[in-house]
Amino acid sequence: NKFNKEMRNAYWEILHLPNLNEEQKNAFIQSLYDDPSQSANLLAEAKKLNDAQA
């Protein structure tokens, strides 16, 4: 299933973003579980936030 793979990839990438705190990571990961079809968008948002907090 495409979403499972996308979701897993997004999950791991978000988990390893160095500039997000636990609360931010948890919020993105919760959103992933709530709507796996948004994995790519959530990952993009997480990366933007990560870069902004660098």
Score class of each variant (00 low, 15 high):
29 I>K: 13
10 A>E: 01
53 Q>E: 15
15 L>E: 03
18 P>T: 09
16 H>M: 05
34 D>A: 10
41 N>H: 09
45 E>R: 07
53 Q>F: 10
53 Q>D: 09
3 F>M: 15
54 A>R: 06
47 K>I: 13
3 F>E: 15
20 L>H: 00
27 A>Y: 06
20 L>Q: 00
17 L>G: 01
28 F>T: 10
18 P>M: 11
14 I>S: 01
43 L>E: 04
25 K>Y: 07
29 I>W: 04
40 A>F: 14
43 L>P: 02
16 H>G: 10
12 W>F: 04
39 S>G: 03
2 K>H: 14
4 N>L: 08
51 D>L: 09
15 L>T: 04
53 Q>S: 12
48 K>Y: 13
16 H>W: 04
2 K>S: 14
23 E>A: 12
10 A>Y: 01
19 N>Q: 06
35 D>I: 07
22 E>P: 13
2 K>I: 14
48 K>A: 07
51 D>F: 11
22 E>V: 13
16 H>I: 03
30 Q>N: 10
19 N>I: 09
8 R>L: 14
33 Y>R: 05
22 E>I: 10
25 K>E: 04
45 E>K: 12
31 S>G: 13
40 A>D: 07
33 Y>E: 03
34 D>L: 12
29 I>P: 00
39 S>K: 05
44 A>L: 10
25 K>Q: 06
26 N>F: 13
52 A>V: 09
46 A>F: 01
22 E>L: 08
23 E>G: 05
11 Y>M: 13
9 N>R: 15
28 F>P: 00
53 Q>N: 12
33 Y>A: 01
22 E>F: 14
50 N>V: 02
54 A>S: 10
36 P>V: 04
31 S>D: 05
4 N>V: 03
35 D>H: 09
25 K>G: 02
34 D>Y: 04
36 P>I: 03
28 F>Q: 03
26 N>D: 09
38 Q>W: 05
9 N>Q: 14
31 S>M: 07
45 E>V: 09
8 R>W: 15
8 R>P: 00
45 E>I: 09
24 Q>R: 09
13 E>R: 13
40 A>R: 06
39 S>L: 14
45 E>G: 03
12 W>S: 03
39 S>Q: 01
21 N>H: 12
21 N>W: 11
31 S>A: 12
38 Q>F: 10
13 E>Q: 14
39 S>E: 00
25 K>T: 12
44 A>R: 07
